[in-house]
């Protein structure tokens, strides 16, 4: 450890302790608090309260805030994710995913390969479960997509990128799925006014990212359907937004990993150069 590091550590320790004490002393941060902020109390009391005018119809407060109360924010955030992946792709825009140049195809040992086969098909079903239950239990589109994103990495590492290329993965297909996910999010976001218009109501009543009916916009998505003696809770737009987000995030991650896992020569020289 150099003297500079020691100095940095001592200074950061002192500064952090001082900052923490000042922040606590001035009451800037909660310290062992036992009550909620009014905003949090509002969310907790209203999100699943059927008698409230402002409810989100979902027992999962986080997903509800994420896609309903702060819906537009999340749409923009998905767009940021989309753009970051586009930017990564432009850095390697010449690299093509071709079976003959994508790795040696040797992979790891047969034990790892066999276990990875089972794991590779089961991770997507776990991701689907996380996303489909996103409005009921912890989880949602992002979480499912991040979970799914590990599956292509696992396949690429344990087998080879060549297998992925031979199975017909291509940048175009993954881009299509990802774009379709983002488009679906956009369509669901603006769907409520059009649904109202289609149902014969006055156009322009519903607002963007409207989930449940409100006092000033009385048409919204249904939160449940009755079928065969059951009431199926799907929380309006939340289920569909979660699904679309799952497709967008997982295809985006798969795309960027297939690109970044290409052999160094292909990445640097571009195209499908022969070794």
């Amino acid at each position: 450890m150099s003297s500079e590091e020691a100095l940095a550590i001592i200074v950061s320790l002192a500064a952090a302790a001082l900052l923490a004490v000042v922040a606590v002393g001035q009451g800037l941060v909660p310290v062992a608090s036992t009550d909620l902020t009014p905003l949090a109390r509002f969310y907790l009391l209203n999100v699943y309260n059927g008698s409230s005018q402002l409810w989100g119809a979902s027992p999962e407060v986080i997903t509800s805030i994420l896609w309903d109360y702060r819906g537009l924010d999340t749409v923009y955030e998905t767009a940021v994710f989309f753009l970051a992946i586009i930017a990564t792709l432009t850095l390697f825009r010449d690299a093509k995913l071709l079976p003959e140049t994508a790795g040696s195809g040797r992979g790891m040992t047969v034990i790892v390969k066999t276990v990875t086969r089972i794991t590779f098909v089961t991770i997507p079903i776990i991701a689907a479960s996380i996303a489909l239950h996103g409005h009921l239990t912890p989880g949602g589109g992002f979480q499912g997509g991040a979970a799914f994103g590990v599956a292509p990495l696992l396949l690429i590492t344990a087998f080879s990128l060549r297998l992925a290329a031979e199975r017909g993965w291509s940048k175009g297909k993954l881009l299509t799925v990802r774009t379709a996910g983002l488009l679906a999010i956009g369509l669901i976001a603006v769907s409520t006014p059009y649904i109202i218009a289609a149902l014969g109501g006055k156009a322009g009543i519903g607002y963007v990212m409207q989930n449940q009916p409100k006092a000033w916009a009385e048409v919204g998505w249904p939160y449940a359907i009755a079928y065969a003696g059951m009431r199926v809770l799907f929380s309006g737009t939340l289920l569909f937004l979660n699904l679309a987000e799952l497709f967008a995030v997982s295809a985006g991650l798969a795309l960027v990993f297939t690109v970044i896992a290409m052999p160094t020569e292909v990445l640097e020289k571009g195209g499908g150069v022969k070794k």
């Binding site: 590492t157 080879s160 052999p263």
Partner: peptide, 8 residues
């Protein structure tokens, strides 16, 4: 650790 590229 085997000394190979991850996508190999």
């Amino acid at each position: 650790l085997e000394g190979r590229e991850l996508g190999d």
